[in-house]
Computed example of a mutant assay.
Amino acid sequence: MQANENSTHQTKDPVLLFFNRVIAQVSRVLAAIMVMVIIWGVVDVVYVLHQRLIAPPFMLLEIKDIMATFGAFMAVLIAIEIFHNIILYVEDNHNRQLAVEIVLGTALMAIARKVIVLDFNEVGAGHVYATATVALALSVGYYLIVIRAQGAKRRMSRSIIPSANG
């Protein structure tokens, strides 16, 4: 029987065990591809930054160049977070709570990237409102699932630990 202390899926079925092994291998392939994407992204950031620095005016960046660089950095950071999420699926004892936290954190980074590179002269008010709504929803979800849960864990650990005076 496949035993995974954090997983709710336990089976004796050989077909499902085979499928689980296939998924684990696919996850490993995705992790390897994501590492290549991350390396490619870093090389791209360095190349684009180099190209913009050697273009006239020499060694000066315009605000649009800085914003594009920030966007490229954020894209690499998002890829790294996605890699971490893939790794959770590869590990036998993946933690579903941690996976949700990473997905929410990654989504927050992605929407932050969108806000950073957003050109308000090129998008309409509806797009801005939709982006704000997504950012708010993700922030509330992150607060409820991650921040609030961490506070509850701290309160529980403080109530378990006896005080030094008592």
Rank of each mutant, 00 (worst) to 15 (best):
T106R: 00
R155D: 09
N93G: 06
D92F: 00
V100R: 04
R96M: 06
A137C: 14
G126M: 04
V115H: 02
V134G: 08
G105S: 13
R158S: 08
Q51D: 13
M109R: 04
N85F: 15
M74A: 12
K153T: 05
A130Q: 05
L118H: 02
T131Y: 06
V146Y: 04
L108D: 03
I66A: 14
K153M: 06
N121A: 15
A107Y: 01
N93W: 00
M67E: 12
D119Y: 08
V134Q: 08
V123S: 01
V123N: 04
A75V: 13
A79N: 04
M74W: 09
E122D: 12
A72M: 15
I80Y: 11
L108M: 15
V128E: 07
R148G: 04
H50D: 08
D92R: 08
I111A: 05
M67R: 15
L104R: 06
N93R: 09
A149F: 02
F73R: 04
L53I: 04
M74R: 03
Y47V: 14
R96E: 10
A132D: 07
V48N: 05
K153C: 05
H50Q: 05
V140Q: 01
A137T: 15
R113I: 07
R148D: 10
L98D: 01
A107I: 01
A99L: 10
N121V: 11
T133M: 12
A130W: 03
L98F: 00
E62R: 13
Y89Q: 09
V134D: 06
H94C: 01
T106G: 08
F83V: 00
Q150N: 08
Q51Y: 11
T131C: 10
L98W: 01
L49V: 14
